[in-house]
Amino acid sequence: MTGHEGGAARHRRPLRADAQRNEDRLLEAAAAAFAREGAGASVKDIARVAGVGVGTLYRRFPSKELLIEAVYRQEVQRLCEVAPHLTTTLPPVDALRTWMEQFIDFMAAKQGMADALAVVLTDDSERLHTRALLADAITHLLTALADQSVARSGVDAQDVLMGLGGISLMAASEEQRELASRLIDLLLHGIVTP
């Protein structure tokens, strides 16, 4: 699939409410399946968990690659959209920690889809765009910390993003999700003032 086709997939017409609910359930079930089983997850099982028929899945996503791409895009969007919500509902340090934990879960799903994503997301500008969106979300969270005077000066959103990426890789290679949480604590100590 070319970058142009991927762009076309992003700009579809709005769905009817019931079709949107079906798609949301499909993407949620697919994200969980890909995180657990990788790109080899069964499309039939994804449809069953989502409570729809395989035909419904294939009407929305004619190939597994398109499903993987849609899951990836939705998870990035969800992660970016949750940052402002967290800063209005939690203290700034808790908001950042919660977002970091969600980022690790996103990366676990992404690792499960890594081989397929390498085929789907061939455009470097797409990866850079995703990185910029995630850095913007982190900047929002860091600004909330700074507004409460609890952030160390000079903390860069891109550095935090790279640190989280490293944490997710280490935790994945060790197959220890709790290791990621412990390493998030260490990263937070470098961001938050004593």
Rank of each mutant, 00 (worst) to 15 (best):
C80T: 14
E81D: 13
V82D: 02
V82G: 01
P84T: 08
L86T: 10
T89M: 14
L90V: 13
P92V: 15
L96M: 14
R97F: 01
T98G: 11
T98N: 08
T98K: 08
W99E: 01
W99L: 08
W99V: 11
M100V: 11
Q102R: 14
I104R: 05
D105H: 09
F106W: 06
A109N: 02
K110C: 03
G112T: 11
D115S: 14
D115N: 11
D123V: 06
T130H: 08
L134C: 13
A137P: 00
T139L: 05
H140D: 01
L142D: 02
T143M: 06
A144S: 14
Q148S: 15
Q148E: 12
Q148Y: 07
A151I: 06
R152G: 03
S153H: 10
G154K: 10
V155M: 02
D156W: 01
A157R: 08
A157K: 08
A157N: 10
V160F: 02
L161I: 12
M162L: 07
L164R: 02
G165K: 09
I167Q: 02
S168E: 04
A171T: 13
A172K: 11
E174Y: 07
E174Q: 13
E174K: 10
E175L: 09
Q176W: 04
R177M: 06
E178F: 12
A180W: 04
A180H: 03
S181V: 12
L187N: 00
L187P: 04
L188P: 04
L188Y: 06
H189M: 13
H189I: 12
